[in-house]
Every structure is written in structure tokens, then in C-alpha cells.
Amino acid sequence: MGELDRLAMYTQMVRIRQYESRIMQEYHADKSPAWDIGAGLIPGEMHLAAGQEPAAVGVCAHLKKGDAITAPHRPHHFALAHGVDMNKMTAEIYGRTGGLCKGKGGHMHLFDPENHFSCSGIIAQGLPVACGQALAFQRKGTDNVAIAVTGEGAANQGAFHESLNLAAVWDLPVIFVIEDNDWAISVPKDASTAGASNADRAAGYGMPGVRVEDNDVEAMYEAAGAAIDRARAGDGPSLIEIHTLRLFGHFEGDAQAYRPELATVNERDPIPKYAATLQELGELTDDQIASIQADADAEVDAAIEFAKASPEPAPEDALLHVFA
């Protein structure tokens, strides 16, 4: 495990939050007054990860060149924390030719082979792919690891259980990261899941399972570091479930009428909490808070400008890239 860099983790969380907040603004900006999900500069479903920054930042702080991530339909925080180019990612979300996937993927299908980053919009189905990436690392004799990210709702899918079993049977260098944000769209965990903790489910496969409470970035950092060290050393897979927070709706446009704790959600925001911790430790000044925020604002604004300046694809481009 490397040295804990608190300022870097805080900065990364702020950067992600600024990104998600601005994408939310941009997404809604030209969809009013008659809201239409397919309209506007950013069309389609939009699943934002504000509040879930500790999950991505705590894990990605340990990753190195060649390590892979498969993210689910809510992928931006892991993409940014893993070093995916913000400009190209934003252009992809805007459906432009300068995007990561030339406008073919969109926000749920971000592919960055240089960083071994991919997503799948199908619940839990990215996990088997991550196992395959881990299998490739194992076969090539590298010490790279694959991070398989999914939500707690996905843990009721067969693909989740097949992946845990395969990873355990083959001792794959894969770390399953479960983001438990309490809600599978509108269904609470206790109505959907037998056995409250997915860390427990790991035990059924002979795999260490850890649950990180309180959306705590440093606890996530430490658990992920231990799991990643273990995988790199050839000791096999682990599972980390973090109790995190979906600050926004399942997707943009979700009124969240089903969510009784909605009024108090902002009180659980992990970023101000972490800022307070760092200030208490004397590792973060007010000036730094302001400059980190200003840098994030500028970077995100530039990425949005980049995206908007990138040309739209031509209709006939749809026929390209079916086959290599």
C-alpha cells in the first residue's frame, strides 16, 4: 500500500463532484419547459454519482498503469478517478466525434482501452468481464488487478454470484466493489436482498468480504489497499461493500418521491465531512479549499467547452465499427 495522500483524495472528490454537478446543470439546461429525456445537448438517461465519490477515490488511489475497471451504468466517478480523459469523456457524453467512442457509446458505455476502463449498462454483467480481465492478467503473469464495480441491487443477479464463484475458484486478481447506496432505483435493500450485507455473501465463496460504513474515504482507501495488495500478491479476490450515498436521483428526472430520507440527504454529503476532517488535522486551509474548487471548476468548464466544440457524427457513421 502506498502513502496516503489526503489532499489528492480530497481534490479528486471535489473534481468529481464538480463534474457531476455541472453535467446535471447542462443536462437539464435545454430540457425545459417541456421535459423530454431525449432532447437537448445531452440526451438519454443520465445516472450521476454525486455522493459516491469515496468509493471511487478510495479504490483508484491504489491503481497503477494496466489495472482495469469495469463500472456499471453510473460510471463517471470511477472513470475520472481512474484517469480517463475528462475532455474525451465529456465529448462522448455529448455524443460527439471527439468522444472516447466517437459518440457511439454515451454515458453508460464509456470505453478507454488505454486505461483499461469500460462500463456496462446491464446490471452486474460487467463483473464477468472483469473476471476475464483478471484472468488475462493472471495468464500474462503481471501483477495487475481488475476492479469490478456494481451496486448493491446488482448483487441479486446471477452474474454477480457466477463471478464471485469463478473468481474464487480461479483465484483471480479481481476486487469486487459494491456501492450500497440503499436504493435499487426505488426499491430499498431490505425489500430486495436476503442477507443485509454483501460482505457476508463473499464469505459463502470463501472470499474476504469487508463492509465500509459511513461512506468514509479513508476507510475505503485502507480496505481497498489491503484487497489490492492481496490480489497483486496472488492471494486472490476480495469483496468490499461501501455504504455510500446517492445524493441525486437514480437518473436525472427522478423525483424520488419514494425516498423518505430525502430531506436529510445533504447532511450526509461526504465531501464537507472530509474537508472538516482535513481542516481538523491541519492539512487543508480555507485558501486551499477555494483553489481546489476553482481548479475543478476550470477543468470541468474546459471539458464542456471541448465537448461542445467537437463535431457531431454524421448519420452514416452509424454504419461504421460493427466489425473490426
Partner: peptide, 17 residues
């Protein structure tokens, strides 16, 4: 019983069930 010692030392797993 779900803390980091499960990873670093194969700590015991007492499940919710």
C-alpha cells in the same frame, strides 16, 4: 465482524444470518 481484518488475516466472518 466485517472489518479489514477479514482481508489482511482471513478474519472470521459472522454473517447477518
Amino acid at each position: 465482524s466485517r472489518d479489514i481484518r477479514r482481508i489482511v488475516a482471513r478474519g472470521p466472518a459472522t454473517t447477518t444470518n
